[in-house]
């Protein structure tokens, strides 16, 4: 069996050159492309996610690892049947209408990606209609909404109501977060869950998709 520790370590180190070298070695050794991705690249990234969670790595380091992993995936992709990759599910993420806060939401997106979810980040100031559109286009399983202002929190409610109106509420899990958000508010507006930080968001998404 191919030893993936070198490749995983290169991902953890965020060393893109080394990742590409190791991926090419694996390809040459005719390792199944999906195995290269899951055991080598995502395997390394899982360690990164764990380390970040216990404050052992900083965001810039996680981002370097993510970039290195992606560089590796790019090499493997052409070898996949139909070019298709599996993932743990697609998360549509964005900051709600009227709210321009970006970073918190991006961090959650980053952590979800590190954990093997596909993330579609719509950005900030997103209307209910735009969220709905994106869910449809990307076969989204989870909708992650961010709001940082007490005066934009209620846009979360409108977005959930729009999901109901579109008859798609049962097909999507909605999670919410941001400084003024609480579990109580989440219950009130009928979201499926609230996460206080990026690590909790990952756990929440995993739990919701498992159930």
């Amino acid at each position: 069996m191919f030893d993936f520790s070198g490749l995983s370590n290169a991902v953890i180190e965020g060393d893109s050159d080394q990742v590409q070298t190791k991926v090419n070695e694996a390809i040459s050794a005719r390792v199944d492309p999906l195995v290269i991705i899951n055991q080598g690249l995502i395997g390394g990234m899982n360690v990164v996610g764990q380390r970040f969670k216990v404050n052992d790595m900083f965001v810039p380091e996680v981002l370097m690892s993510a970039r290195a992993m992606n560089d590796g995936i790019e090499l493997v992709k052409p070898l996949l049947a139909g070019g298709e990759m599996t993932n743990r599910g697609t998360v549509i993420i964005g900051t709600v209408k009227g709210d321009l806060h970006d970073i918190g939401k991006s961090l959650v997106g980053m952590m979800l990606e590190c954990s093997g979810f596909k993330v579609v980040d719509l950005g900030v100031d997103i209307s209910p209609e735009e969220f709905i559109q994106a869910i449809k286009e990307n076969d989204g399983k989870v909708l992650a909404l961010s709001a940082l202002l007490t005066t934009t929190m209620l846009s979360m409610k409108s977005t959930i109501e729009e999901c109901v109106a579109q008859g798609m509420r049962n097909d999507i899990k909605v999670i919410i977060g941001g400084a003024p958000i609480s579990q109580e508010f989440s219950d009130q507006i009928g979201a499926d869950g609230y996460a206080g930080d990026a690590a909790a968001a990952v756990e929440l998404v995993a739990k919701l998709l498992a159930s």
Binding site: T150, T151, M153, L154, P180, F185
Partner: peptide, 8 residues
């Protein structure tokens, strides 16, 4: 100071 949860 700022507003509680509400729309403007």
């Amino acid at each position: 100071l700022t507003l509680p949860t509400m729309l403007i």
